[in-house]
Each structure stands twice: as C-alpha cells, then as structure tokens.
Computed example of a mutant assay.
Amino acid sequence: MPVSKADLMVRRTGGLLIDVRTPEEWKQTGVPVTAHTVSVDDSDFIYQVDRITGGDKSQRIALICRTGDLSGQARERLIKAGYQNVTIVAGGVSGPNGWIDADLPVRPYR
C-alpha cells in the first residue's frame, strides 16, 4: 500500500498503522504521527497488537518499518496469529517514496 493510502486509511476509516521497527530506529527518524509503536523484535509482539486491536482479528492494519523488510516478517506473524486484513506500507518510513519522502508528519520518539 502506498504511504498516502496508509495515511488516509488511518485518518478516514479507523484502520491502524503500526510501526514495527526498533526503538533505536524510532529515535533516529521519528514515528509517523498516527502510528502505534510495537517492535516486531519484542517477544510479546502478538500480545501487544492484540491489545491495540482489542483482539479484533478483522481490524484493518498497515505495517510500516524502515524500508519494508521487517513489515513482511511482522505480517507473516500476524497472519499466523489469525489476523485477516494486514498490509505493508511500501517505501516504509525512510525508503524511497516512503513516509518521510511524502512529507507526511512524524513525531519524536522518547
């Protein structure tokens, strides 16, 4: 999904944007303002996503990482956990045509 569609999905339809990078990466670039931060490296990754979604496996979720690689891993894990509507944000946060290139807002991570 292109970054512009991910941004609209969150703002207009109540979908979720989840940034799956590490805290170090969040600190380097900031985090998309509408994103939840759940690192795919966390041992309780699925539990954290379940908390955000309220356990709704049909919730529309867009995953974002630096350039797209970690999002693929996160998507596989969520699908195995029963999530049905999970997509990846093309370009990630800092890749070509990504969130920052599209001049979409980010917030600092502390």
Rank of each mutant, 00 (worst) to 15 (best):
L16G: 00
P23K: 03
V3I: 08
W99K: 11
P105V: 14
D69R: 11
G72H: 06
G30Y: 07
Q73Y: 10
Q59R: 15
D44E: 08
L63S: 04
Y83C: 07
P105E: 13
E24T: 12
R66C: 06
A6N: 03
A62G: 06
S39D: 00
G91C: 09
I100F: 08
R51Q: 14
M1I: 08
R77Y: 10
E25G: 09
V86G: 10
K5F: 02
A62F: 08
R75H: 07
G95W: 01
I79V: 15
V106P: 13
D50Q: 05
V33F: 09
D42F: 02
K80L: 14
S39C: 10
Y83M: 12
I79G: 04
V10Y: 06
V31Y: 01
W99E: 04
T29V: 14
S39Q: 05
E24Y: 06
G68T: 01
R51T: 10
D44H: 10
V106Q: 15
N97P: 02
I100H: 13
R60M: 11
A81C: 13
T67D: 09
L17R: 02
T53W: 03
I52G: 02
D101V: 01
I18M: 05
T22P: 01
R51A: 11
G15H: 04
R11P: 01
R75C: 09
A35T: 12
G14P: 01
T53Q: 04
P32K: 06
Y83G: 03
G95I: 08
V33G: 04
V106Y: 14
N97L: 11
T87N: 07
D56T: 02
I100L: 15
L104P: 12
S43A: 11
L63C: 02
I18N: 05
R21S: 08
M9Y: 01
Q48H: 01
E24H: 08
V33L: 11
Y109P: 13
